[in-house]
Design a binder for these strands. Structure first.
Lengths: 231, 231
DNA sequence: CGTAGAGGATTGTTCAACGATCCCTCAATA
DNA sequence: TATTGAGGGATCGTTGAACAATCCTCTACG
């Protein structure tokens, strides 16, 4: 913990613009996403507030933001912790993804669609794979699906899924087998993109449903083993 | 012993204590839902904090919670206001509802389904209508759709829609023609329930889609006129 | 009639303080 | 040995106060 706090103090320089609480939450969010604060870590008000040089009130506001995003859990009189997803959480995340993402594809109007964002995410994934950056592939996969949801052109839907995808990262980090987890889906993203480019919504939806089912199965299998280790 | 412990664990939810900020936000949330604080109302820190007997810091924390739920908007140095939805907001709410609610119905497995909650909401609406309580009918309608979403058995999906329905109430309060707004949908809820009881998902989905399209059209029509008046 | 500015009211932000709660330790007891 | 209970330290929850920044209103003046 001491090591982490020292590094965290370096982030203090970034604290110059916009709302302080938001900037603090940005810092913490990326620290969590990159695994610097692994799931289960307790985030103390005193030490983090001290390291970042912000007051407790401001820090608590930042905690609220991240709690609302489900990245932190708040236990009364005990503080906030980086969330530890249960297997049920992972299943629910995929249930929600399947429901929403498939509905987005089904609800698309007539082609052509604005697929630039999707194509860019595919390219991002390919590039990361070439460089052996498997975590980058995972990020690109999430971008792909975020762009997919964006096709619905609904602010609220996009926001829900943003938080769902952020949660999913927590699971990926626990599993920590990025290549095995992400590589197989590069090709499947391409197939979905091609189906959409061809205007074939039904095929895209089928591919997507199969994708999500397979991905859930694989994540849960490894996740269950990994969670079992600790208990 | 194991059996007893399991039962005890269920009781844990009952003694889940909450912070004062959460209790304050609960109070304000229901006040907003019932129209006691209509959209556009400014919530002053002094008067509300004084009335509820909580400090400014605590009250501000409650405000933040409700702001995250999109029930309040925060204007810098001016305070918080009960949100006034734009026509675009209303359209996006219905876009999200259509996407999610139809997907829930489509994603149901094989019948029979657990439809007790839906039936209860229908009965609630009928009773309110008999008593001429049109706001109660609106509440019952929202309950109906909340129960519908619950059929997906996804915690995350249910939570998203809870907040969407809470926002929708804001629109209803602006329109303020509860009978015209809610009465037509009592019968349509019944029809959807019957289709589900008959195990006919496709018909239920069609009815639902038509319902939402009509409702959106009607709400937006009146809403646009009402918003125009003020400006 | 329009505008500039003074003054009051309200919010933004931080800090210090105190009570409440949790967690760990350790001794007493069966 | 295992369980219980009593301390004590650490941390959180909440309040109140203080001061700066901003907004709003009303007045005075051109």
């Amino acid at each position: 913990m001491a090591e982490q706090l020292k590094d965290l103090a370096d982030d203090r320089a970034l604290l110059g613009r916009t709302s302080t609480a938001e900037r603090v939450s940005d810092i913490l969010r990326s620290r969590i996403a990159e695994g610097y604060f692994p799931p289960g870590t307790r985030l103390s008000e005193d030490s983090i507030g001290g390291a970042l040089g912000v007051s407790r009130n401001t820090l608590r506001e930042a905690f609220r933001l991240l709690t609302h995003e489900r990245l932190l859990v708040h236990e009364l009189n005990r503080g906030v912790f980086v969330r530890v997803l249960t297997v049920e959480d992972v299943e629910d995340i995929y249930r929600t993804r399947r429901l929403v993402e498939c509905a987005v594809v089904r609800g698309l109007g007539d082609p052509p669609y604005g697929l630039d964002g999707l194509a860019a995410a595919v390219e991002e994934g390919r590039r990361a794979a070439r460089e052996g950056d498997w975590k980058g592939v995972g990020t690109a996969n999430i971008h792909f699906h975020r762009e997919l949801v964006a096709l619905a052109a609904s602010e609220r839907t996009a926001e829900l899924m943003r938080s769902v995808f952020a949660e999913l990262r927590l699971a990926f980090h626990v599993v920590d087998e990025p290549q095995r987890l992400h590589e197989p889906y590069i090709a499947r993203n391409v197939a979905i993109l091609q189906a959409l480019q061809a205007g074939d919504r039904a095929r895209a939806e089928n591919l997507l449903a199969g994708y999500l089912d397979d991905s859930l199965e694989r994540v849960v299998e490894v996740y269950r083993r990994r969670v079992g280790e600790d208990g």
